[in-house]
Design a protein around this nucleic acid. Structure first.
Length: 261
DNA sequence: CGTATCCTGACC
DNA sequence: GGTCAGGATACG
């Protein structure tokens, strides 16, 4: 589910539930999470106070008063379920954060690819990340500068979180369609004018007005998804059948007429 | 650069 | 039974 807008929404929900609250118990249900966080380190979270909940790209950070940070990444299918400690555990709950006030935040993830890690004070929990799309410092010139060495096609580059933080596979295709840029266009050869258009369209598709509902497939037909998942269906601009190709192992959808270069 | 891998569920 | 999935990373 999650690309930047969905993670932003999730972080807000988490913030409302967790900010200022004291942790009572953190539990890991899935072995892949347990491998990364020992029972001993888990127990050290009892009594810790969550001072802030931050989002950076698709990452969520729970800052603790003692300087440590809980880092969560939803990967493909993670989400929060907010309830109370006495509720039945939701299906696919992989971890829970229980607070002293009785709130229980469950990390639900049918695919169990989400990560939850604990970082010591002073230890940066985030990998190298490019600017937020909304950042004023994200400009055609700054983008051009980091693209100069990218000899490959633009679409996989948009998924590189070191270039830009938050764009995922759906919105990469959508942004390129809106910007009339071929997903195969060589990144380094895009002119400043085309990059300006691309930046504008990335901001548009990631913007609140374009946010997807939780089940993105329901958005199909509503007009919000222009190309993603629409192989063979008519382009909304020129009626040419939308094509699906694979780039760097991921599906790309585009209109070969509107996005010929 | 592409490919395999981590997981599980949905769908053909 | 096989294929695919909105992410990221380790590797050749």
């Amino acid at each position: 589910m999650p690309e930047l807008p969905e993670v932003e929404r999730a972080a807000r929900i988490l913030r409302r539930a967790a900010a200022g609250k004291t942790l009572a118990c953190v539990s890991l249900m899935h072995p892949s999470l347990r491998r990364k966080l020992s029972p001993h380190r888990l127990r050290t979270l009892r009594g810790a106070v969550v001072t802030r909940v931050l989002r950076r790209g698709k990452h969520q950070l729970l800052e603790l008063q003692d300087g440590r940070t809980i880092h969560v990444h939803f990967r493909m299918a993670g989400d929060w379920d907010i309830g109370t400690a006495t509720d039945t555990l939701p299906r696919h709950a992989r971890a829970t954060l229980e607070f002293e006030n009785g709130t229980r935040v469950a990390l639900v993830d049918p695919r169990a690819l989400s990560t939850l890690t604990l970082h010591a004070a002073g230890d940066s929990p985030l990998p190298e990340l490019g600017p937020e799309p909304s950042d004023a410092a994200f400009t055609p010139a700054s983008l051009a500068a980091v693209l100069t060495r990218r000899k490959g096609p633009i679409k996989p580059v948009l998924l590189d979180q070191r270039i830009l933080a938050g764009v995922g596979n759906i919105y990469a295709s959508e942004s390129l369609w809106h910007a009339h840029i071929s997903p195969r266009a060589v990144a380094a050869t895009l002119t400043p004018e085309r990059l300006e258009r691309l930046i504008r369209e990335i901001r548009y598709v990631l913007g609140p007005a374009a946010q997807l509902p939780a089940r993105y497939r329901q958005a199909r037909g509503s007009g919000r998804i222009a190309v993603y998942g629409r192989e063979g269906e008519p382009c909304r601009r020129c009626s040419t059948p939308i094509e699906r190709i694979v780039q760097a192992g991921r599906s790309t959808y585009f209109c070969s007429v509107c996005q010929s270069s």
